[in-house]
Design a protein around this nucleic acid. Structure first.
Lengths: 234, 234
DNA sequence: TAGATTGTTAATCGATTAACAATC
DNA sequence: TAGATTGTTAATCGATTAACAATC
């Protein structure tokens, strides 16, 4: 090995151009879905003043197996130390980089009912990663009010709000029957990711990322297990 | 083949005891998670007056491939007709049975902020499958008010509310720092399924089913794809 | 060094997809 | 019957798990 310390894979060596971002590895979808869980567990540890952790303790906190945790992290490169464990702050940073949380994403919330209201006030993410940049609603009684420090703008200005804020993510909290329409408009206005809370399967172009959260579906999945339990008893 | 029509698998033949529920097949988790999507698509078709559908049309509506749809449905038994397709009403019933939606589940919502409010008023499921049976909050200003036709009861009565209503499912919409505590109490009081909206990994006994919905995680997963897109451009 | 823990390898497991025989 | 579509089979693919060599 040379006398010059080997840069970690993905980190810039002494001669690398600083402007070049770390080469992006393809991370399996199942792993991507778990990275936010690890990040949350690491934040808890950091708040407790823990500096160093192991795959075993972190896995317990995240509710997964230690083998799965290490396998997942291996897709981001080697960020642990053999025989020692993981530096909490360093690993947090690496996961944030892998998830693309290095630049702040701007989010527009469409539909400011109770749900939209709750989402606008959501503080579960650090606030450095995402910012709610615009609110839109169709109800004239809601338009013009201030929610979470932002004015609610009329539905017909959706495209303008996306353009002005440079939002890349739209959160849809409207009634189901208008969800597809506002989704189409948000996509046409330039968002590349949609998070939909309406109970409707939306269609989006292939280059747009769609995630759907539906209370009804979640409850129905719980009902399946509920039934199996009562059958096991009977 | 005998002159007597063969009962469909899972259906009762002429001599079967009526009290005996259909034998439960184990359905793969990935399939269970998609059944609510199919059910929703079937409801849309039914409302449009469509009586018969095919795996191809239903798959388009649900946003999956026709092969996957047929494979999923095959785990529930044979409910289609060769060369013809699926009867919309019949298939809906069979999926409902498979999901355990034959008896109404009672749900308690814990935490009546904006999110809890939105959930209490949620009408995305038919109302025959689930009923919101109880509401609980810790804030004295909220306790005693009526939300979605139900009185909000004080947090210390959580156990009593679960017992009185016979709720089997708890929806947790509290701040993250009390989520584990109310979850423990709800489980001790007898719920077997928990749907958590708090940004915290909860621990539940192995016989309790837990599903977690976290806005922050969903946004972070969107951010990952967002980043990959901008890198592909750059 | 001795003990501990990573990152990776290989094996298992489950999910998806395509193709087609069965059959309405 | 002829045409159409299911349900299943087999092949592929991806995810999970366990075990261990590498190494701090």
């Amino acid at each position: 090995m040379s006398a010059v310390s080997t840069p970690r894979p993905g980190e810039a060596g002494p001669t690398a151009r600083p402007a070049r971002p770390a080469r992006a590895r393809e991370v399996p979808p199942a792993t991507v879905a778990r990275l936010p869980v690890y990040l949350r567990a690491l934040h808890v540890l950091a708040q407790q003043g823990v500096v160093l952790t192991s795959s075993r303790s972190l896995a317990v906190l995240a509710g997964v197996g230690p083998a799965q945790l290490r396998k997942d992290l291996s897709h981001l490169g080697s960020h642990g130390t053999n025989g020692v464990g993981y530096d909490v702050a360093h690993l947090s940073r690496q996961i944030a980089v892998a998830l693309g949380l290095t630049s702040q994403r701007r989010v527009v919330i469409i539909g400011i009912g109770h749900l939209g209201h709750a989402l606008a006030n959501y503080t579960g993410f650090s606030g450095r990663d995402f910012v709610v940049a615009g609110l839109v609603d169709a109800d004239p009684r809601v338009v013009g009010t201030t929610v979470a420090g932002l004015p609610v703008r009329p539905a017909q200005e959706l495209e303008a709000v996306v353009a002005e804020t440079g939002a890349t993510i739209a959160v849809i909290a409207t009634p189901a029957d208008v969800a597809q329409e506002v989704c189409d408009r948000a996509v046409a206005a330039g968002v590349t990711g949609v998070l939909c809370f309406a109970a409707r399967a939306l269609r989006v172009p292939a280059d747009v990322d769609l995630r759907t959260v539906d209370l009804g579906s979640e409850l129905q999945i719980l009902a399946y297990h509920d039934r199996r339990k009562s059958e096991r008893l009977g």
